[in-house]
Amino acid sequence: KFHSELSQDISLLLNDTDDYNVIIQTGEGKNSREFRAHSIILKIRSPYFKNLSTKWVVQKNNMIEIKKPNIRPTVFEIILKYIYTGEVNLTKRPGADILGLLIATDELLLEKLFRHVLNH
């Protein structure tokens, strides 16, 4: 089995955002940040993003735009890393992030991660 190698390689996708086709806006005002991602990865990892292929998708310049102002960038970063690599590291995270993560994973129907955070 080469699972660790697989998740390592896929995590490269997260940083090397060449073929990205999704832009996710998180946070509000100064505290906002854009993430780039790949719809196929999002789709297979989360039922929430599964709907990206339906009529709900908003596209601008061939980019899918998703707005999640209620999720803080620091929280979404953890989620995105989990989606791409299956890895979560909650140590040294401020309590606000942990709480935000708990709410966000519930909303985004990331059940496993939700339970993991709950146990933390």
Binding site: N51, K55, W56, V57, V58, K68, N70, E107
Partner: peptide, 12 residues
């Protein structure tokens, strides 16, 4: 008329 709607918002 769904195109005027925001999925994220309605979902929320």
């Amino acid at each position: 008329n769904a195109s005027i709607l925001s999925f994220e918002e309605l979902y929320r």
